[in-house]
Structures are given as structure tokens and as C-alpha cells.
């Protein structure tokens, strides 16, 4: 029936031989090493071409296998293997790296914020409405250098930034009891202004104005803002006029603009 041995091998591997034929074929094969090899190769080819199957190599005694296994047992191979496993852990769980990266980012962010506040405190910003346009806590002198040294001042600044003006005033006053720092009057004045106490705001701005601080001209600007806020245009013009008398005064240019705007 099977003229060609290849076809017979195929039938054998495909399970197409009846039990009698199968027995007979296996008997022939047991005496024929060449036939055994042929069957083995045909089986391997079939497995290869049937992609879903994978033929496991059961031959445990080849020299190639021994050579491979000896190397796998070596220290060198063990070391490399552990390096691969470590890379897997790093890939799966990059947290240790990530955490420190996040920490660095957070510290960097604090630095940026601190830097920006310093810059912005000196710079002026502008918005639409006149008061909103001209008022900016960025106009307040920087206290960053001082805050690291004094607990009252740090707490005062913290409260001020959190818009808790009453608390801020309390801390600033405590600070002033021990420190001669006229700059603080600007913060206290603005805090009073924010809580609607213009009288006390004015007192504090005047304290700054009459101080020897190099920032005393800023007091004129804060007073202008205050008059702008309470819509006292007469006093506003008067104060702005004082600013524009001296070009070295704080916000000299802005004062000119604001004067034109209220006129």
C-alpha cells in the first residue's frame, strides 16, 4: 500500500496505520537506525511546521547539552542571571528611583516658588480693574532673607500668604517687638487694608514712610492703593503727585499712569 517509505513514515506519525501495521513498522524500525533517524527528523519537521506545537528535546545525554549545563552552573552565568533579574525588578518597581526623583522635583519646585516670589515681590503686575490692576502683594518687599531666622516672621508670612491677615498682623507685631524692621509696616498696613481697617493701614504706611528704610517711598504707593480702594480720589491724586516728584520713588512710572487714569 505504501510504496514510498516517506509516505509510510508520514502515516505512522499521523496515526493512520492500523494496529497491525503499526506493530510491524515499529518492529522494522527497532532494527534500523537509519529509519529511526528518518522518523525522528520527519517528526521534528511536522512539529516545526505545525506551528502550535513545540517539540521538546528529550535527549538528555548529548555532549552539547552537557557543555551548556556546565556553563549555566558557572559563577559567571549565575552572576549574569542575577543581573537580569535585578533589571526586571528595576523595570517593574522603579519606585526607589522614582521616589528620589520626586523628592528632587519637590525641592526644585520649592526653589522655583521661592525664586519666583522674590522676583515677583520686586516686580509689578497689572490686571484690569484699577485697584486690582495696581494692587499686588508682589509690590511688597521680600522678607525671604529674614524669615529663615525668626519664627514669628515665618509664621507671619505664612499666614499672610494664606490670606489670614489678622493672625499675620499678630505675628508681625511680635516680630517687631524685638526687631527694628520698618519693611514690616508695609505688610501690616496691607493686612489691615485687606481686613478693611484703613485707619490702621494708614498708620502703618506712615510709619514706613517716616522710617529710614530705603523702601520708604513704597509707603506712598501703598497709600495710593489704599485711597484707590476706598475711592478717595483727592487724597489719591495728592499721594500720586508726591511719588512723581522724584523719579527714584517706587513705582514712579506706574504712579504717572495711574494719575492719568484717575484724571
Amino acid at each position: 500500500m505504501y510504496e514510498d517509505i516517506d509516505k509510510k513514515i508520514e502515516a505512522y506519525l499521523g496515526g493512520d496505520l492500523n494496529s497491525e501495521e503499526k506493530k510491524q513498522f515499529e518492529l522494522i524500525m527497532s532494527d534500523d537506525i537509519e529509519l529511526q533517524k528518518k522518523v525522528k527528523l520527519a517528526n521534528e519537521i511536522n512539529h516545526h511546521l505545525k506551528e502550535e506545537n513545540w517539540l521538546s528535546d528529550e535527549d538528555k545525554n548529548s555532549s552539547s547539552r552537557k557543555e551548556i549545563e556546565d556553563y549555566i552552573k558557572s559563577d559567571e552565568a549565575t552572576k549574569i542571571r542575577s543581573k537580569i533579574l535585578d533589571a526586571g525588578k528595576r523595570y517593574k518597581n522603579p519606585q526607589s528611583k522614582f521616589k528620589s526623583k520626586r523628592l528632587i522635583a519637590a525641592v526644585a519646585a520649592i526653589f522655583v516658588v521661592a525664586l519666583l516670589s522674590t522676583v515677583l515681590f520686586i516686580r509689578n503686575s497689572s490686571t484690569t480693574d484699577l485697584y486690582a490692576k495696581y494692587y499686588s502683594d508682589n509690590d511688597l518687599p521680600s522678607l525671604l532673607k529674614r524669615s529663615g531666622q525668626n519664627d514669628f516672621l515665618s509664621k507671619g508670612i505664612k499666614s499672610f500668604k494664606a490670606n489670614e491677615y489678622e493672625t499675620a498682623i499678630t505675628f508681625f507685631k511680635e516680630y517687631l517687638k524685638e526687631n527694628d524692621d520698618p519693611i514690616l509696616y508695609s505688610y501690616i498696613g496691607i493686612s489691615y487694608l485687606e481686613i478693611g481697617n484703613t485707619n490702621k493701614a494708614l498708620i502703618n504706611f506712615d510709619k514706613l514712610l517716616n522710617s529710614s528704610s530705603i523702601d520708604n517711598s513704597k509707603a506712598l504707593w501703598y497709600k495710593s492703593l489704599m485711597y484707590l480702594k476706598i475711592n478717595d480720589t483727592i487724597k489719591l491724586r495728592k499721594t500720586l503727585s508726591k511719588i512723581i516728584k522724584d523719579s527714584t520713588n517706587f513705582n514712579y512710572k506706574k504712579a504717572q499712569d495711574l494719575l492719568l487714569a484717575v484724571d
Binding site: H48, W54, L55, S56, R65, I72
Partner: peptide, 23 residues
């Protein structure tokens, strides 16, 4: 055994590559 797992597969993979080459 661990070594056996690797050696088996390496030899099988080598055979697979050889068959692919011949195909």
C-alpha cells in the same frame, strides 16, 4: 532541573532556527 530547562530550550531553539533557515 533549572539547568536542564535552559539547555533543552537552547538546543530546541537552535533546531528551530536551523529548520527555519532550511525552509
Amino acid at each position: 532541573v533549572k539547568e536542564n530547562k535552559h539547555s533543552s530550550f537552547i538546543l530546541e531553539q537552535e533546531r528551530w532556527e536551523l529548520f527555519e533557515e532550511k525552509i
